[in-house]
Structure formats: C-alpha cells, structure tokens
Simulated scan of single mutants.
Amino acid sequence: MKRKYKVIITIVSLLLVLFVGAGFFAGNYFFNLALNPNTDKSAALNAPHNSIAISPEDAKEKEESKKWFKENFEDSFIQSFDDLKLHAYTLKNTNETNKWAIVFHGYSSDGSQMSKYAKHYYDMGFNVLIPDARGHGKSEGDYIGMGWHDRLDVVSWINNVISSNKNAEIVLYGVSMGGATVMMASGEDLPDNVKAIIEDCGYSSVWDEFSYQLKAIFKLPTFPIMHFSSAVTKLKADYTLGEASAVEQVAKSKTPMLFIHGSKDTFVPSDMLNEVYEAANVPKEKLIVEGAGHGGAESVAGDSYWETINNFLAKYIE
C-alpha cells in the first residue's frame, strides 16, 4: 500500500511540476507577446477583429497635422518615480494661455502619432503636451505599462506643467491605451489644476482586455493562462494584470469625465464603456458614436466629436 501511495504521490507531483512549468512558459510567452516593447505586435494588431480602417480623408488630415507637428514641437524630459527618462512633445500656443491639454497615445504607438488630436486642441487655444508612454517612442522602459505605472507618470507630467505654469488649467485626454491611462490616473490625488478628463475607447481593466484578446485571437480560456501571465508580469514589471483596473480607479476619481466609444469597436469591446461610466461618481457624460470602430469615433463623428468635447470642457475650463 505504501509503495502504491508513493507512486501516486510521485505521479501527482510530476504532473503538478509539469503543469506549473508549462504555465509559466505560456505566461512568459504571452508577456513577451503583449508587454515586451521589443517584440513584434503585428500578429495581434493585424488580427481581423483588431483591424482599424483609415479613410482617405482621415489619412489626408493626419499627414497635414504631421507636417504642422514636426514644425512646431519641442522635446521635454522628466525622470519617472522609478528613474526612467521619460519624453514628451511640447507645443506651446502662439497665443499665451494657461490652458493645457495632455494627450496620451495608444498601445504600441508613440506621441508623434497623436498629431491630429494635438492640432485640434491647439486650435481650441490649448498648449499641448504629448508624452511617450514608458517603453514607447523616446521614453525609456523595458515593459509596456498598459496605463498602470503610466498613471503615476501622468501625475509627474501634470506636476511638470504646473511647475512652469502654476495657474495651468489642465485637461487629460487619451485614446485606447491612452484612454485607459487617463482613467487609471483619475483615481490618484490629482492637483486642482486638472479640470477635466476625456477618454476615448479605453478598456475597463488590463485583465479584461487581455482575456478578451486571448479568446478572440487564440481561442484560449482565461484559466490558467491569464493567471500565469499575471504572475510573470508581476515578476518582470511589478504589477499584476488584475490590479491594473480603470474601473476601480475611476470609482475614486474627483474629476469630471467624458467617456467616448465607437459602437462597432471590436478591439476594446464597446460594452466596457458601460463599466467605467457606471463606476464614475463625478460629473460625467458619454458619447457613443454609431458605426465607429476602435479609435474611429473622431473620424466617424467628425465635427460633432469636437463639438461634444468643446461643450464639455466649457463647463470646467475658462
């Protein structure tokens, strides 16, 4: 009996070791696929449900704004809470103003790709600051924060603006991962200078977004891959996929918020909008753009997109 019992224990132990080993192997694979900034993201970004259509008109506006951007930006740098050198593009308005828009880009992108949005805020009379998220563009970092550690970088950029303009009236704006970033920052103790936050197609949490993509791209269940991936993320990037929650951060916010999403978004499912909107206990509004895919609300809605933003900001910024 004892021998049989030992054999069973040995087999179970080996199976457990194999399970854990395979789990961490898979977790490391998905960490590198999703959060290592040096790996190719095309497999995920080019998946059919993640494709982002760009109209000829949108492409033309983007090219025109890129030219304007290159002729007008200045480089800015700060040190992060964990000693990374972070970069941002600064566009000072020719008309002196205390109004600042801090604009945040999406996943696997960089600040220079936000020139179209920057131009709109500039034309609305704002100075514009566009940070490169850690691990993106000219900012240092060996992992993608998905908005979580970036939320503390947001606070650093806010303080940097205030240090040179104590009367600054600041709006935080972000698209996709940038939208999640400003939502995650909303739960921090922000200075009174931050008057409003606008998020466009941000996800409810990193766990929810990655679970959705895991199923959509690889047809794999949440358990156990997400759990091992989260453990690897904690080891390599010092945060878990579960703690990186826009919903929980928005629930702590004291800043008025505008939530925007396209009804046909299949990259960040549009039902995530309801989760973050319902969690907010501040003056809030939402704009659902019918027929818009991921990051397409602005191009589909056109002038009404910016009219909604203008009307929202007019309530909180002089």
Rank of each mutant, 00 (worst) to 15 (best):
R3Q: 08
K4H: 02
K4C: 00
Y5G: 00
I9H: 02
L16C: 11
L16N: 01
L18P: 01
V20C: 11
G21E: 09
G21W: 09
F24E: 05
G27K: 06
G27D: 02
G27L: 08
N28W: 11
F31R: 08
N32Y: 01
A34S: 12
A34T: 12
L35N: 13
N36V: 07
P37H: 10
T39I: 02
D40I: 12
S42C: 01
A44W: 04
L45G: 01
N46F: 10
N46Q: 14
S51M: 14
I54D: 01
S55V: 07
A59R: 12
E61S: 13
E63C: 00
E64Q: 15
K66R: 14
F69Q: 03
E71Q: 14
D75G: 05
S76G: 13
T90R: 14
T94W: 00
N98M: 02
K99T: 07
A101P: 04
I102L: 14
I102H: 05
H105M: 12
G106L: 06
Y107Q: 03
S109W: 01
Y117E: 10
K119W: 00
F126Y: 15
I130M: 14
H136D: 12
K138Y: 10
S139P: 03
E140Y: 07
E140S: 07
G141F: 08
D142H: 14
D142I: 02
G145H: 07
G147A: 04
H149W: 15
V154I: 10
V154F: 02
S156E: 06
I158F: 07
I158L: 10
I158M: 03
N159C: 02
N160Q: 15
I170T: 05
V175L: 12
S176H: 06
M177Q: 13
E188M: 07
E188D: 13
D189N: 15
D189P: 00
P191W: 13
D192S: 14
K195W: 10
A196V: 14
E199C: 04
D200G: 04
G202E: 09
Y203C: 07
S204C: 04
S205N: 03
V206N: 01
V206Q: 01
W207R: 06
D208G: 01
A216W: 00
K219I: 05
P221Y: 09
F228A: 06
A231C: 05
K234T: 11
L235S: 11
T240L: 04
G242V: 06
A246R: 01
A246M: 05
A246E: 04
A251Y: 03
K252E: 02
S253D: 04
K254H: 12
L258P: 06
I260R: 04
D265M: 09
F267M: 05
S270Q: 12
E275D: 13
Y277G: 06
N281Y: 01
V282I: 11
K286V: 06
K286F: 13
L287M: 15
I288F: 05
E290W: 00
H294R: 08
H294A: 03
G295T: 08
S299C: 07
V300Q: 05
S304D: 13
E307C: 00
I309N: 13
N311E: 13
